[in-house]
Structures are given as C-alpha cells and as structure tokens.
Amino acid sequence: MYGKGRIIPALIIFIGLMTAPMWYGSGDASKLPNPEKPKGYTECVEDTQYMRTSHMKVLNDWRDDILREGGARVATTANGTEYVRSLQNGCMKCHNNREKFCGECHKYASVNPYCWDCHLQPKEAM
C-alpha cells in the first residue's frame, strides 16, 4: 500500500481519538445506580417506570401548564395524596436528597441537567 508508514499509525490514532469517550467512560457496568427512596412514602405522582423514563417530561409539562395555561399548582395522586406540582416545592419534599436520588442515575447516565442552577435543593435552602 502506498504511504503505509504514515496511513496506518494515523488510522490508529484517529480510531483511538474517536473512541476516546468510550475508553474514558468505561467502568464497571454491573454497578447499577441505586437511588435512595424516600422513607414513609409508598407512591409517586405516576408509576415508577413512567417516572424513571419521563420525569423530565412531567416537569416540563407542569411548568408549561402552570405558567402558560394557568393550570393548578396542586394535584392528587392515584391514591388521593395531595402534592404540589413543583420540583423545588413538590418532588424535593419527599426526595429530599438530590445527590442520593437524582445524582445516582444522572451520574450513571452521564447527564448534567442544570435544574440546580436556579432551583434550590433542600439542603442548600436550609
């Protein structure tokens, strides 16, 4: 092959660089996230599976509904428990530890939502 001496090392460097994020992020996949469940509560605003996949959509919908459509701030769960449709004043009432609840999965999934740039977590607020 013409220019073998340069092409092959360059190709190796290229592949190495392109896959660097994978090497960098490689770790123990068996160590699954274990978010701390709130004590004394048995149900959330939706079922666990839905919350796991779509909590961000729930938050977005609450915001748009309350802010733009004048929607209610308080709602009730399937079992009739009242809750505030708010991250800061609702979710964090029960899930009062951001690191141990939110952080567990967010770290595992390597996502960095900027909720806390504005919203206050219970500890901070004290």
Binding site: I66, Q88, N89, C118, L120, M126
Partner: peptide
C-alpha cells in the same frame, strides 16, 4: 435564599412577575 422560590441563572432576563406564585 428563600427556599420556596428559585433563583435565576446567568444569561437570562428577569423582571417583576406581579407575584404570580403568591396569587396562585
């Protein structure tokens, strides 16, 4: 910090909201 109200973040505009959160 008022624990029941958020702050804002860098790079956004803000202003009086006529206390919409209190009216609610």
């Amino acid at each position: 910090l008022n624990p029941t109200f958020p702050t804002r973040m860098r790079g956004v505009v803000e202003k009086c909201n006529f206390c919409v959160e209190r009216l609610a």
